[in-house]
Design a protein around this nucleic acid. Structure first.
Lengths: 345, 345
DNA sequence: GTATAATATGACAACGCTGTCAATATAAAT
DNA sequence: ATTTATATTGACAGCGTTGTCATATTATAC
């Protein structure tokens, strides 16, 4: 049983026990090159024996690195954020980094200053960004110009011309699959309920929808493509609107599960049976997509895994030894189609 | 516009500009006593002019305080966690503290060691605990014995005999109100769907339910009080069970919204109309309680505010000057009844 | 006006680590 | 065996603060 009062082992203790200088211990803990294998083992043994863990404060005070990264987000989807945090935290623990979370308002006036101030004040050595922040190219560029290391997580694919290390989620292809699934179920009139336009994901998902319809030779009806926001209310609204229009859809592809849940709610109000009268599909696999009635067909992304890999990518770019080397700066993920009752008649 | 490269002002710069020693600057930034008013002003002016901010790493390396607190949780409800984080973060920003989040598995074998190790490693000066951790008295006690400052957030009321600073949420009284509301709607046979027993909240809510029935002279039927977990599936299960029993309820009080959503789902499967055939109430005001059909009656708690106040309480106990003084160590919150369609016929 | 107590300030050594550069050990080349 | 290049290791000075203790200044009492 560890006792708080019991002095923590320091680098000096390890050095003494291993019979080397503290600098050598430092080399081992930092995985630096130029330490003989036998020495490394000797030191590692002492580290294990004393359960030595470097003091982060001393580290960041003495060195130029800080072992602290920041996770910046502005996302109302709590499950997404929590999963991201968990994934990042896992990677942080494995790499002896600490995580500072930083929810922000991406519409803030002086967003850039706020971020720079935060990085400076908390001595963060890098930042992980999610949409919509990760898609604001001007902010990204300014941040990089100031020498802040970044990894973006966003909707899209690696064909991008930017150089910022990024983790892409191929929403377009997943949206294509969902739409295709709807078509396979015999639907010809399929509506699309969009999310916030400032999120790239909304555009990507719409493009996937359009691609699928095009490939199936189904005419794109602009009256069936509604703009909206990523919210339950928006789904309610869009459903009400489209169902009172001239051209009524037999299926709806909502840009995320919340919109889909709203559409579901609205359809019921209108006396429509789901999926008999209208099939509804969502996106994201929000936990409550399994708790609606009927359960929602959707696209699932391995959020935690995405987060871990994004963090690992950041760490790689933070290590001077591997900097500028051949580390692949782009990672891609493919969401998975999850078919449930809301689209199966 | 701040530039990252621009050297940050240090205590030395401030001292030089103010014409005092660095120690005096330190005294001012730490609000220590024994600095002449005129000197203090002189120093403060220099601080403002240079936009000086103490370096946290140096601070925690040199001193005994660390300006870092930890938020420890093991809660599947993402919305609750996010709200807690936001509230704590607000308080942290106002008090120049940093927050390290730490999701854990409260069933872990060596939970205590893990926590102590974390506190030591990250040099946290205090911890904020939520259920179920905040209700594990043995862990709490061991932590306090090791000199770790704590603030608990939990279900209950301030009559507790413990001395650990705590923020209470009076679930019992809110559950009483919900049950009373159900009774007022004419229900006599009201079922209770419990949550995880290791959460004090489940017991508190059940007690509120029992108290309300007792006061209304309604017989408590043990067959209507089901044990369960805080999950959608548990709600489905409980509903199926109670509806296939001898004594069928006309109303259900579910221990939280997730259970209620499951009950709702299950009722529909059984061909029951809500609220006509059976009224359903939840607890917590989870966002999706507004996204079910019909919307759920529930009890709402100001999670963010609770979190902020808990953090403030911790900070007060961390400040040596106010330590042991007359700061009230217990804060209470009252959840608010929210009546929606699921209980209104 | 002087002795004494109280108050205000400063000098300086930690804190635990990394960066720099010099010193040493080992391998390679002659 | 020597010299030279290379791989390994160590000594030591910071990093920006706070804690301790000594010193200087001011207020109080006689």
């Amino acid at each position: 049983m560890t006792d708080l009062k019991a002095m923590k082992a320091t680098i000096n203790d390890v050095a003494k026990l291993a019979g080397v200088s503290i600098k050598t211990v430092s080399r081992v803990t930092n995985n630096e090159t130029g330490v003989r294998q036998s020495t490394k083992e000797k030191v590692q043994q002492a580290i294990d024996q004393l359960k030595y863990q470097p003091n982060q404060s001393a580290r960041s005070l003495a060195g130029t690195k800080s072992y602290v990264i920041g996770f910046v987000y502005d996302n109302p989807n709590a499950y997404y954020v929590i999963d991201m945090q968990q994934g990042i935290l896992d990677a942080c623990r494995a790499n002896h980094y600490e995580l500072l979370i930083h929810p922000i308002n991406s519409k803030s006036e002086n967003l850039l200053d706020e971020l720079v101030e935060m990085v400076k004040h908390s001595r963060m050595s890098g930042l992980l960004l999610t949409p919509p922040l990760s898609e604001m190219t001007d902010i990204i560029q300014s941040l990089e110009e100031k020498g802040i290391k970044l990894v973006r997580i966003l909707s899209g694919n690696a064909n991008s011309k930017v150089t910022t290390p990024s983790v892409f989620v191929d929403d377009r292809s997943a949206a294509f699959q969902i739409t295709q699934h709807l078509i396979e179920q015999g639907h010809q009139k399929i509506a699309f309920f969009g999310g916030d336009e400032e999120h790239n994901s909304s555009q990507e998902r719409r493009q996937g929808y359009i691609d699928a319809l095009t490939q199936a030779n189904i005419k794109i009806e602009s009256g069936l493509m509604l703009a909206g926001r990523y919210s339950f209310e928006s789904g309610v609204e869009s459903c009400k609107r489209v169902m009172s229009g001239v051209s009524k859809p037999s299926a709806i592809f909502a840009c995320n599960d919340e919109i889909a849940a709203g559409a579901l709610f609205s359809a019921r109000l209108l006396g429509l049976d789901v999926p008999k009268d209208v099939a509804i599909a969502g996106f994201e696999d929000n936990p409550f997509s399994r708790q609606t009635w009927p359960k929602l067909t959707t696209a699932a992304q391995p959020t935690q895994e995405i987060a871990s890999q994004a963090a690992e990518l950041l760490f790689k770019n933070l290590r001077p030894s591997t900097q500028g080397d051949s580390t692949e700066q782009f990672i891609s993920f493919q969401p998975q189609l999850v078919i449930r009752e809301s689209t199966q008649s």
